[in-house]
Simulated scan of single mutants.
Amino acid sequence: MQLVDIMQNPSRYRRLGARQPKGLLLVGPPGTGKTLLARVIAARLKLPFFFASGSDFVEMFVGRGAARVRELFARAEKAAPCVIFLDELDALGKSRGSGMQIVRNDEGEQTLNQLLACMDGIDTQGNGIVIIAATNRYDILDDALTRPGRFDRVVRVPLPDKEGREKVLRVHAKTTRLSSSVNLARIAENTEGFSPAELSSIINEAAIMAATKNAESVTQADLEEALRSYKVSRGKAGLFGLGK
């Protein structure tokens, strides 16, 4: 919300010497909605949204990955102001290792160096380009990439608590025909440690089960059966008390 305000009302901040954050790094487990957050920021700003995954830049041929980074930033400069979103940043920005590292990946280093150079070339006072990236492996990112001046903000995107899980379930249940007896708070209570993506999957699986039985709506029994099956298939039964 603060980033959106800074980009929409830059004079409010510039009068005190503040500058727009160059990069925003979203860190959290898979499925917590990091990509969705980036899209929401771009939508609130009403700006073009450039999406790229870190794996898109991993190439066998030396120089090709760096060229793709240059192409991405060149397109963004033409469309500025805009938002660049880099998913799976760990695939692109892994630490270059210590001095004891003997075997070095020249292509990976060239690509990372090109990204660093492109980020340094962003003018935070004028062109209105902001970079948002996401990773679930912050610990392996290169220090030169995560330092302030490149990624000025690190935002933790954690797994939701019970109240958050219930809200997520209600969002995904809006397009599902639920029985009046369904108690989503009970499902939220029994899904500790679940990501929003997993909660969405449970709602969908319950709807599939109900449709298979030609039911008129999704019942509490369908939701609990979908949850039970998910815990077994993902090895979470012992962690969350499947027998209860």
Rank of each mutant, 00 (worst) to 15 (best):
202 I>F: 10
105 N>K: 12
195 S>M: 07
210 A>V: 14
103 V>S: 13
178 L>H: 07
133 A>N: 10
187 I>A: 04
175 T>M: 10
228 R>E: 10
149 G>S: 02
230 Y>A: 09
198 E>I: 08
223 L>Y: 00
218 V>F: 04
121 G>T: 05
215 A>W: 03
206 A>D: 09
178 L>Y: 08
104 R>S: 02
183 N>R: 14
117 A>K: 15
171 V>P: 08
165 R>T: 08
208 I>S: 12
184 L>F: 12
214 N>Q: 11
192 E>I: 03
163 E>C: 13
231 K>Q: 11
134 A>T: 01
117 A>V: 13
217 S>V: 09
194 F>K: 06
183 N>E: 08
143 D>T: 02
193 G>L: 15
184 L>R: 11
152 D>P: 12
126 G>H: 12
112 L>M: 09
231 K>A: 08
184 L>H: 06
216 E>Y: 01
101 Q>A: 15
191 T>D: 05
156 R>N: 05
181 S>R: 11
213 K>N: 10
168 V>C: 15
136 N>V: 05
204 N>I: 13
161 D>H: 05
180 S>D: 15
199 L>E: 11
111 T>K: 09
104 R>C: 02
134 A>W: 03
179 S>Q: 13
201 S>I: 00
135 T>R: 09
177 R>W: 01
173 A>V: 10
200 S>M: 11
106 D>R: 12
181 S>G: 06
217 S>G: 09
157 V>E: 04
221 A>H: 07
208 I>F: 14
230 Y>K: 05
196 P>C: 04
